[in-house]
Measured scan of single mutants.
Amino acid sequence: NQASVVANQLIPINTALTLVMMRSEVVTPVGIPADDIPRLVSMQVNRAVPLGTTLMPDMVKGYP
């Protein structure tokens, strides 16, 4: 099973992602692959992302 990117904390709308905000976890449904975490750094979320939420491609501005 492939690990996905999961919010490690509440991420407010328009926040630029940092490594501490994300963790990898095997979840269903599958979200953004954990391998993409380095690419996500400094990209902004377009909505508030609660703790434990799987990051989906449509939540991150400019992804992929």
Score class of each variant (00 low, 15 high):
60 V>K: 01
37 I>Y: 03
38 P>L: 13
11 I>A: 01
29 P>C: 05
33 P>R: 07
1 N>Y: 15
14 N>D: 10
60 V>N: 00
15 T>A: 07
56 M>N: 06
32 I>H: 01
57 P>M: 06
12 P>A: 10
22 M>E: 03
63 Y>S: 05
4 S>E: 01
1 N>P: 15
36 D>Q: 15
2 Q>L: 14
61 K>E: 13
25 E>C: 05
4 S>A: 03
42 S>M: 13
58 D>V: 08
57 P>Y: 09
28 T>W: 05
13 I>E: 11
34 A>I: 08
21 M>W: 00
27 V>Q: 04
24 S>G: 12
59 M>C: 05
64 P>A: 12
3 A>G: 15
11 I>M: 04
43 M>Q: 10
36 D>G: 06
2 Q>T: 14
13 I>D: 08
5 V>C: 07
39 R>N: 11
32 I>T: 00
15 T>K: 06
55 L>R: 00
12 P>C: 09
24 S>M: 11
19 L>W: 10
25 E>G: 08
28 T>I: 06
32 I>W: 03
5 V>P: 00
37 I>V: 05
41 V>F: 05
43 M>N: 05
29 P>Y: 03
30 V>F: 09
22 M>S: 01
15 T>E: 10
12 P>I: 04
55 L>G: 00
55 L>A: 01
21 M>Y: 06
20 V>E: 11
27 V>D: 02
12 P>T: 07
14 N>F: 06
62 G>S: 09
16 A>Q: 10
23 R>M: 05
17 L>Y: 00
54 T>G: 02
19 L>F: 07
60 V>L: 11
6 V>Y: 00
47 R>Q: 14
41 V>C: 12
6 V>G: 01
3 A>N: 15
47 R>D: 08
47 R>A: 13
55 L>T: 00
19 L>I: 11
46 N>G: 12
56 M>R: 07
43 M>R: 10
38 P>K: 10
2 Q>N: 12
50 P>S: 12
42 S>R: 08
8 N>Y: 04
3 A>H: 10
18 T>M: 11
4 S>F: 03
56 M>V: 10
7 A>V: 11
62 G>V: 04
7 A>F: 01
37 I>S: 04
43 M>F: 11
27 V>P: 01
58 D>C: 15
61 K>C: 13
24 S>A: 13
39 R>G: 06
35 D>P: 11
6 V>M: 04
47 R>T: 14
53 T>Q: 11
